[in-house]
Each structure stands twice: as structure tokens, then as C-alpha cells.
Simulated assay, not measured.
Amino acid sequence: MTEEERLARAALTRVGEPGDEAVNRWLDRYGAVDTLKALGSETPLPGVSRARWAGLRQRARGLDPEADLRAVDGAGGRFLCPGDPEWPSQLDDLGDGRPVGLWVRGRASLRLWALRSVAVVGARACTDYGAHVAATLGSSLAARGWTVISGAAYGVDGAAHNGALAVDGATVGVLACGVDVAYPPGNGSLIHRIGEQGLLVAELPPGDHPTRSRFVLRNRVIAALARGTVVVEAELRSGSLVTARRSLALGRVTMGVPGPVTSGLSAGVHQLLRGEGIVVTDAAEIIELVGSIGELAPEKRGPILPRDLLAPEAARVLEALPARDAIGTAEVAHAAALTEERALVRLQELRSLGFLEHSGGRWQLARRASGHPKR
């Protein structure tokens, strides 16, 4: 891409809103330089009304992309365009809604980090449970070499980022403002740390501030960047579910962590899981879904009890013993459907293993100090 095209794309990030499909169609058809020049004319380019064209022309007045590039450079960042070596090609899956360019702050390669990445999103006003789960997922994924992507917001987003940073892992914050703007202000120190240790990414140029619609629009970038999205706590009406729906539409693995059925903050997640979402409870299960062949989560089992190790016949004999009374060998044999000789062999085996006691020719379950059968 020529320097003139790069400057024009940087300028256009101040003209259209993120994901503006009309602007992207013009870029494909005319290129960035000619699209920017066309904004000097009163004749609209195809696909927009005169009123909309007038609004875009208003924004196009007084643009200074060189100043924006100097500003991002001063903040330790850069401007990426489609086709650059660092450009994550999966963003092109957004079609006409793909970013015109990306303003990036941080030293790592966005393309390389995004190749092995998971988005962890959820409620801003999350519960302690949600914060704990998000932080645990963030640290566990990062410790296993996965990049944690989120939106640097309060609640689940911040917890996921903090979890990754706590283990010196890779994390990417996708902002709805410029990469030099700390929003929300209460996460200023976290956003600064992400910029120092990880990556900050934005479609909006330096100094631009967020709006309600821009938060929704940036969610599509989170979904497209990651190989999969995990939702940790979300109400039925939630921006996190917008990210999940985008993830599903893009063919990405979309997952949810279940919560209490009595919690409204888990209702949106449960709705997702009733559809195409997949239940996950830890990082290993997430990696099994989004990772390479062979990255399987360990099978989860309950504790193994001593009686679980018994041969089937011995287990049947043990089941034949009543909970409190003592019985003779013939009664055991009858209850276990064995001959007396065979039952006696198994009874003696069970006594040697500490399951039974034998007194006066009768058998009973061995009892611990608590008085409960040793089963």
C-alpha cells in the first residue's frame, strides 16, 4: 500500500463510523485516495442519500491524518491497513463491515497474537462469581499460550485482562475510542498496563471518544479477531450477546459459562446455551474446542471409592450384606446368587481388604469410628 493510500485510510477513520459498509464498498471500487477526493464534491458516491453524503462531507473538512499518525506514534503505536504483514486476515471475514484500518498500541504483532486467541466477554456489573470465573479463565488461557481478547470494560472484561496480565500472558483490549484514551476512566491503570504489556486496538483515531453505538460496533471486531468467544454472565439484553451472535455468524466457536438459574446475570448465557452455544467450565474445555487436534481436556470424574475397584462378583457379595445386621455365609450366597463355596471365597477376600468383619460364623460390614459402613 502506498503512503498516499495509507494516509487516506487514516483520514477516513475520522469520516465514517466503524463498520460503515458504504465506505468499504467505495474503498473496494475506487480506493482510499479517490474516495477521500470524492468527498470534496457535492455529488454523492453510490449507495448513500444526499443528506448522509452532506454529513460525511462535514466530517471530512479539516482532516489532518499526518497529525493523527504522529499522535499514535508518540503513544508507542501505529496504524495498520489491510494487506500489511501485521494485519489479521480473519478481519476480512466481516466483508463490507471490516475495519478501514486499525490503530494499534503495543509492541507485539497483532496478527501473530490473534492466531491463537480467545475472546472472554460478559457483564459489566458482574457478580463475584463472574469476576472469579473470568479472571481464572484469563490466567489459565494465557498460561497455556493463548491470547485473551476483551473490551477493557468494567466487570468480566477487566477481570479477564487482569487474569492474563497476572501470569505475564498475552492480552488484547479492543476499544470503542482512540488507543490514547482511557475509557472507562476507572480502568485507566488497567488500560495503561494492557498498552505496556499487551496490545490496545481501535478503529477510531487518536483522541476520539466512545458512544453507545461504538461499543456495539467494536464487538464485531472482538468476535472476528478471536478463534472463539466465551460469554461469562450476561443478561438477556446484553452487548456480550451481540458479540456472541457475531461470533456465531462468522462461524467461530461460541461458548458460555453457566451460572445460577436464579441469577438474571446468567439468563442471557443460558439462552445462548439453549441455542448454538457450547457449555464450558474451564480453560482446558475451551482449548479443546478452539485448539489444534489433540488438545483435549482431561476427562472429569468423581472421586474413586475403594469399592469401585472391586471385581463385579466381589461387589455383588458386598451388596448382599445388610447395613447393620450380621448374616451367615448361606444367606450371603443366596442374596448374591452364588454357591456357598464361591461366596465364602469372596467374603474372605472382602474381610482381608477391610470391608467386612467375621464373628461367630456370621458376616457384617466393618464399621469406622464414625459408625458408618466402610464402603
Rank of each mutant, 00 (worst) to 15 (best):
W53E: 04
P260C: 13
A311P: 14
V231M: 01
R346D: 12
V253Y: 09
A8P: 05
Q197T: 13
W103D: 12
T35C: 15
E341V: 11
A176I: 06
A267G: 12
G207V: 09
L115S: 15
A8V: 05
H132C: 14
D64H: 00
P306F: 12
R78N: 06
V242E: 12
H358P: 13
R307C: 15
K300S: 15
R212L: 03
A283K: 01
R144H: 01
T43H: 07
S263R: 10
A134E: 05
I149V: 10
L353D: 00
I286N: 03
A226L: 03
V174T: 05
S150L: 11
A108E: 11
T262E: 05
G277P: 01
P184E: 03
D168S: 10
C126N: 06
V48G: 03
F215Q: 00
G360C: 11
A284H: 07
L56R: 03
L190E: 10
T127D: 12
L365H: 01
P206G: 12
R246S: 15
T43F: 04
R218N: 09
L353C: 08
W53H: 00
P298W: 11
S266E: 10
C81R: 06
D20T: 04
P260K: 05
A226T: 00
A125M: 07
A284K: 06
A314Q: 07
V242C: 12
V72W: 08
A176Q: 01
L250A: 05
L115V: 14
H358M: 13
Q58D: 10
P322E: 02
E276S: 13
R245M: 11
S292E: 14
G268Y: 01
Y154G: 11
T171N: 02
I149S: 09
E331V: 14
G77S: 01
L273N: 08
G163E: 04
S41A: 15
E331P: 05
A131G: 08
H372W: 10
S266Y: 07
R193K: 07
R274W: 05
E285P: 05
Q58V: 13
A22L: 08
S41E: 14
A333Y: 00
A38K: 02
V345P: 14
I327G: 02
G122C: 10
L347G: 08
R9S: 07
R78E: 04
Q197F: 12
A320D: 09
Q197I: 13
G268E: 00
L80M: 01
E5P: 02
G145E: 13
E357K: 07
G207D: 10
L69R: 02
P82N: 13
L296T: 15
A38N: 06
V104W: 12
E5H: 07
W113C: 08
D28F: 04
G76P: 04
L165T: 08
R52P: 11
N24Q: 09
L250W: 00
E299P: 03
V179Y: 03
T339R: 01
D325C: 09
I304F: 08
Y129S: 10
R98L: 15
T329V: 15
W26D: 05
S139H: 08
R144V: 11
V332K: 00
S140F: 07
V269Q: 11
P99Y: 06
T35H: 08
D64T: 11
D28C: 14
L318N: 01
R220A: 13
A142D: 03
D92M: 13
L344P: 11
A311H: 09
V179F: 05
L305R: 14
Y129K: 04
D157V: 12
R351I: 11
V230F: 09
P258Y: 10
E313F: 07
G155A: 07
A166F: 06
A51N: 14
